[in-house]
Design a protein around this nucleic acid. Structure first.
Length: 510
RNA sequence: GCCGCGUUGGUCAAGGGGUUAAGACGCCUCCCUUUCACGGAGGAAUCACGGGUUCGAAUCCCGUACGUGGUACCA
């Protein structure tokens, strides 16, 4: 058996949404699991939807996810070109379309858009709201099936705009085996005569997938389940052009759904979670759609959560590294039903990955989010120590800022409401005296600070517990963060004393 | 409308004729911690509905409902 070759074929029309990334991911995992090649080819045959910069964006996303292709327009390969537009230049699609016409499996159609619209209107009935250009209607249209050979040649010679349509056979059953769903059967009567070659000479997806997959020796083809209804067209094309024995194995992946129905870009804005892998600024509309990367997700968490949205290895394991996914992935454990995306669970995955990543690695992931924060990034030892202290409290990468600013800067506001109700003269005196004790500590370390605090509290006959919260508010500004003496140790004697004095002034008005 | 695909707690899901129907997220309670988390122990919550087949159905079959996709010179 030949080497497994799996391809992802995005159309560069915009950001890479969750469903798209999951499709690539499954392509990649399957290929790598079988020791095969993962190929990315670009479907840029639709100028009307092609968006400048979208192709580069797709590769940026793949790079961030760590699933780079073995072959692509960017990475090269022996089966190029990897862009359909370039293959079209070489006249490849037209050759195959003409062959189909010659063999009687396709025909020229000269109907103008207006005529098509008229047809759809004329034949529209309540029980058939969208009539198709099919085996019944094609004999009423203007094509090489209804025109004489002479008329057809004349039209062709005159350069009349035309398309090539597949001639769907009547009354046949087309079936194929889907790796996820098993046997799929379709009646040819129910599918229309799809356009294969457009008037501008560009192939439609239907012709292009088949030709490209053949030329690129693709062995396995995964795509979204929205392609299931047109799968018989592709199967027939394989049969007519190259033989069913050469056809790749298909897998139609389930949809990813949003809180209400199919996941859309709008859902992101509406419910406050990203739907694209990375930020996407649409150059046409100037509209920004937020990405998981910029939101503060780790790529490890991102591919992990996507992989298990519709797949599991049959055990209770939920956290997988990329290497584990490659090792354990199997296409027949992919669900056939759509899955609703749950942002809360997505955040949990990120939280888990933040906890399991070594600090030295984590630091590089966090730094970009701290760049403009005013926090000093040069003292890497201190940085890593503090990150280790707070990482259990961070779900998204930007959380590190609020969880650790107080290690670097005095708190701007103090949650004085937390202190006020139980504040009194005794406590005030305690802290006044505590400051002088603190300035006398020669060896500024955890146990010394903690002992000083507790001894003084005992001497003053106040429960240490009642004093810890005020001290925390003084140092941190709020009711959060690592143990308070650990913080005091980390920020040093001067800052600790300053913050206490400053807070005491603040509390004087109580 | 027609056609395809799907349906196990709120969500992701294991289980594919006999199970007390796993586990995870989220939610709630308690423990740990005189902060917030982490961690630990518990709890509430499920086989869409109706018919079959069978000694026995979440599991097999048929309907219905619901969801979703397709029905383009879009992919």
């Amino acid at each position: 058996m030949s080497k497994v070759r799996v391809r992802f074929a995005p159309s560069p029309t915009g950001g890479l949404h969750l469903g798209g990334v999951r499709t690539v991911l499954y392509n990649y995992l399957f290929a790598k699991n079988k020791g095969g090649d993962f190929i990315v080819r670009i479907e840029d045959t639709d100028q009307t939807r092609f968006v400048e910069g979208a192709e580069q964006y797709i590769f940026d996303c793949l790079k961030w996810c760590g699933i780079e292709p073995d072959e692509s327009p960017l990475h090269g390969g022996d089966y190029g070109p990897y862009r359909q537009s370039e293959r079209k230049e070489q006249g490849i699609y037209k050759t195959y379309a003409d062959k189909l016409v010659a063999d009687g499996h396709a025909y020229y159609a000269f109907d103008t858009p207006e005529e098509l619209e008229k047809m759809r209107n004329d034949f529209k009935k309540p029980e058939n709201p969208s009539p198709q250009y099919d085996h019944l209607l094609r004999m009423k249209m203007k094509n090489s099936l209804t025109l004489t050979a002479d008329e057809v040649n004349k039209l062709l010679a005159a350069g009349t705009r035309h398309v090539i349509r597949i001639k769907m056979p009547a009354g046949e059953i087309v079936s194929f085996t889907d790796m996820i769903r098993g046997e799929i059967k379709n009646e040819t009567d129910l599918v229309d005569d799809k356009v294969l070659l457009k008037a501008d000479g560009m192939p439609t997806y239907h012709l292009a997938v088949v030709v490209d997959d053949y030329l690129m020796k693709i062995t396995h083809a995964f795509r979204g389940e929205e392609w299931l209804p047109s799968a018989p067209v592709h199967v027939l094309l394989w049969k007519y052009l190259f033989g069913l024995d050469k056809m790749p194995e298909w897998a139609h992946l389930p949809l990813i759904l949003g809180p209400s129905g199919k996941l859309s870009k709008r859902d992101g804005a509406k419910y406050g979670f990203p739907v694209f892998a990375m930020n996407w600024l649409d150059p046409k509309t100037n509209e920004l759609t937020e990405g998981f990367k910029e939101k503060g997700f780790l790529p490890e968490a991102f591919i992990n959560l996507l992989a298990v949205l519709g797949w599991n290895d049959g055990t209770e394991q939920e956290l997988f590294s990329k290497e584990e996914l490659v090792e354990k992935f199997s296409i027949d454990r992919v669900h056939s039903g759509g899955a609703k995306f749950d942002y809360e669970k997505a955040k949990w995955f990120n939280h888990e990955w933040i906890k399991r990543l070594p600090i030295s690695d984590l630091r590089f992931r966090i730094e970009p989010f701290l760049k403009d924060s005013g926090i000093d990034l040069t003292d890497t030892d201190k940085l890593e120590k503090i990150m280790g202290l707070v990482k259990d409290r961070c779900t998204l990468l930007p959380d590190f800022y609020e969880q650790s600013v107080f290690f670097f800067k005095d708190p701007v506001t103090l949650d004085s409401d937390a202190v006020k109700p139980k504040w009194n003269e005794d406590k005030r005196n305690f802290f006044l005296e505590f400051v002088t004790v603190l300035s006398g500590i020669g060896n500024w370390e955890l146990s010394a600070i903690e002992d000083a605090f507790k001894n003084l509290a005992t001497a003053k006959n106040i429960k240490p517990g009642e004093l810890q919260l005020p001290l925390r508010i003084m140092l941190v500004g709020g009711k959060f963060g690592p143990p308070v003496f650990v913080i005091a140790e980390a920020i040093g004697a001067t800052a600790t004393i300053n913050r206490i004095n400053k807070a005491l002034d603040n509390f004087a008005s109580f």
